[in-house]
Design a protein around this nucleic acid. Structure first.
Lengths: 209, 209, 209, 209
DNA sequence: AATGAATGAGAGTTCATTCAT
DNA sequence: TATGAATGAACTCTCATTCAT
């Protein structure tokens, strides 16, 4: 995960691939069950039903297998590009769809998201990874806001990037509170309120036509 | 910190009080410098220039001294009741003042806030403490929103508690991004944009009078 | 032993001094019994009847306690300045006395010398230590040879430093063969033959007076 | 290497012979580069570009492949019988030629000699092998000394075997200091001084004829 | 109250050797 | 024969906690 760390060679045989995959899957279960800190290497190898030494055939340490777990789970956590999916131009509908998609994805991967929160507090490189991902998401939102401003349907006074960051923060933090911390909001309720706050905040006006 | 944990008697002598205070101060420095996890008890006693054994005269473990550090720093982190301070009834001015006060306080205590983030990921009781504090803050905000709705100057469609939570989340997360993660926003810029987003989101209308 | 290695603080109490000394004595026994490589830290603590952790109170690793063993044994291995002791000016007698002293000291410390041989092959810093010690010895001998050459009683063709090194090497290697490798030479026989070879080699002539 | 150790069958196929030879050559490079102790079996197989398992087809352990390396290098390290080569009867010339031959051979094989030193400290059987070799050499020298004594051209007081051992030790140790430890003596200087010390030591007198 | 040495469970890591393919 | 993954005993080192002084 860290730069300059020696990395193990990838397995050359089918058997090796299988063992490596078993270890990554076991690691994910152990991490989600016990948290990153309390997960010991032996917990992982016990869960994978293999010898300690086998761990070191594929990974040099806990960070590295955690990186592998994230790599494995990458697709599960991707934010879809909602605008294209919805096939509409109505900004409110697009924002609503995006919020819903984000919240549903968060709910599905709640355990992993919680894990990411924990590790991000400990490991600089995970923090960086996470920042890179959310930056991409935020920039897309900032571009969308700018377009709305140009079209004259959003508050032109707002800084688009800062606003996108703030509103994205609002949504992601609410997702965290709900699906990780266990605050008892309903998904529909969340989607509606967050969408209304978001569109109000941008002063999105009903289409003039 | 956790319920049911045996807790050390408070010191009875002046000397004891002094040693305890030295330890708490040293612990804060060590925690802020190394983070909670990397802070070893011996680091704390070395920083306090006292023997390891003395630690156990006042605390049973690291969690307990961390609780003492938080207790000590409580006042520093309080959010003032801005409405009373500003002496105005203009909701935008009040919100702007509250946001500024919050952000300034966060900036002042950035190291401690970062520490809290880290420990909250690890220790359930700190997570609970933190939730209690922000709940109090959020409820005050929810009440204020309700009043504005009653007065007819805020969007009546919004759920006041959920909105208060969401908007508070937005501000606190931006504080974290700026003062802990190091995002390069300016304080004034932040205050203005967040305040505008917040008041827009509530659709606060200019006073009818 | 190595430069730049963090070193443990010396003990502050009598009890600490005692434990440290116990460990060093135990280490010497274990090293002499099993050799440096086969001596495990746990062998040393078991021999010293203390916990593993106590080892690390005083030493950071095996090299460091080995250095302490050498430090402790330093005096035992010193080469006396024989010339002053013999109180004679007869070069043959002085050389004989020096050789005897050296061989007797080697015989007394045979186990330690063997240990030194072994560790010198492994640890650069021990090799350096050893070179420093024998250099001092050799330089003294070179000076003595030069004096004899000046007095006209030794072969003036010989390079004094190279000759001193070679003849010292001869003696020390014979000591090693006899007392470490177990070659069955008698001490007296060794003293006489080495002395005769040494004085012959320098062509020390009977005093002209 | 040790008696009673199970030894692998020699390879039966050409391919097997090739693999074995590759391993021995690789082992020598790895040993000379890293030293015996730091050479791991995987280092050797990696250097030989073959699988770990193949190692065990030909050797049972590290000692055995080291023995094979020595076997391979045997001829390189042989001490020629100089007397026959020089074709002269002048003892000084013969001794000079022998010393030069020895030192040149040592210089050529310095890396291997250093390796031998290291392994001899660790492995009893290598120590024995080495003793056998130098004994043969020493006995030849002792015989030569005895002849000189009989011919009346060498000090008759000296024990021939002990003297041969001592003088050989002197030369071999100087070779070690120079070509392994890096003492900066010149080859010619060494040859001359050692030869003079050696002939002086034996009190070799100019031929009476 | 203060001291600091003693403790030892527990974690990470290495690597010679085995073995199924 | 060749391959390289699998194994686990063995070792080093850490550090919270105890305890005698």
């Amino acid at each position: 995960m860290d730069v300059g760390r020696e990395v193990r060679e990838p397995p050359r045989t089918a058997r090796g691939l299988r063992t490596r995959a078993t270890l990554v899957a076991a690691a994910r279960r152990v991490f989600e069950r016990q948290g990153y800190l309390d997960a010991k290497l032996t917990d992982i190898t016990r869960e994978a039903e293999c010898a300690v030494g086998s761990f070191y055939t594929y990974f040099t340490n806990k960070e590295e297998i955690f990186a592998a777990v994230l790599e494995e789970a990458k697709e599960e956590m991707l934010h879809p590009n909602v605008r294209e999916m919805t096939g509409t131009d109505d900004p409110v509908a697009v924002i609503r769809a995006a919020n819903r998609a984000y919240l549903e994805s968060y709910a599905r991967n709640a355990k992993l998201m919680r894990l990411l929160d924990q590790v991000a507090e400990i490991d600089e490189s995970v923090r960086a990874l996470r920042r890179r991902r959310s930056e991409a998401f935020t920039k897309r939102n900032a571009r969308a806001i700018r377009e709305l401003q140009v079209r004259g349907v959003a508050d032109p006074e707002l800084d688009s990037l800062l606003s996108a960051t703030a509103l994205s923060s609002m949504v992601s933090r609410m997702a965290q509170l709900t699906f990780v911390q266990g605050e008892p909001w309903e998904l529909d309720e969340l989607v509606e309120t967050l969408t209304r706050l978001w569109t109000n905040a941008l002063r999105i006006t009903p289409r003039p036509d």
